[in-house]
């Protein structure tokens, strides 16, 4: 892979050894997402109808564990394996339009298609052919946003 890239910086970041951990962590997520059924269209319906605690329990316990971890990492000024102090990027609020308008548009798609981006990749791995249609449509949506971006309120 390194022979395709030009700058030394990119070579360092993209070496096999540097990228392998992300692959393994992603694999773990794909297994958990499949086995907890959060990639199922029906589970999203169950959530949006408030018929089960399953999805809400997963999302909220994930946030609690994530929040405690981030708090600790910031408090201890932890360094990552590359040696630098870990920093979280803060989104610029702007006028805030993008978050609630963009969020609601995303939510419409999430409710209809029953999958957000992570599950699309997991569904593909599960051999769900329709997920390929979801992926291509989502790419079209991303491209359309990129084209319309200058004209949208953010």
């Amino acid at each position: 892979m390194p022979q395709h890239v030009t700058t030394q910086n990119v070579t360092i970041h993209n070496s096999f050894g540097k990228l392998l951990p992300y692959f393994l962590v992603g694999t773990g997520f794909g297994i958990v997402a499949t086995k907890s059924q959060i990639i199922s269209w029906y589970r999203m319906q169950e959530m949006f109808r408030f018929h089960s605690f399953h999805m809400f329990g997963i999302i909220s316990s994930a946030i609690v564990v994530g929040a405690i971890s981030v708090w600790l990492i910031k408090k201890l000024q932890t360094r990552h394996l590359g040696g630098e102090v870990i920093q979280m990027s803060t989104r610029v609020p702007g006028d805030g339009y993008r978050f609630w308008i963009g969020g609601s548009i995303f939510g419409l798609g999430w409710g209809l298609a029953g999958a957000c981006p992570g599950p699309i990749f997991a569904l593909l791995g599960n051999g769900i052919v329709g997920a390929a249609v979801l992926l291509v449509s989502a790419l079209l949506g991303t491209w359309t946003y990129a084209v319309l971006r200058p004209y949208l309120p953010h």
Partner: peptide, 27 residues
């Protein structure tokens, strides 16, 4: 599926994140 998937892609970029980036990481 087609329109739904399109809105997922469009909305995620417009909102600068999806369920993982906003609901889990951001929160």
């Amino acid at each position: 599926v087609v329109v739904g998937g399109f809105l997922v892609g469009f909305g995620a970029r417009y909102a600068d994140g999806c369920t993982s980036g906003h609901a889990i990481s951001g929160l």
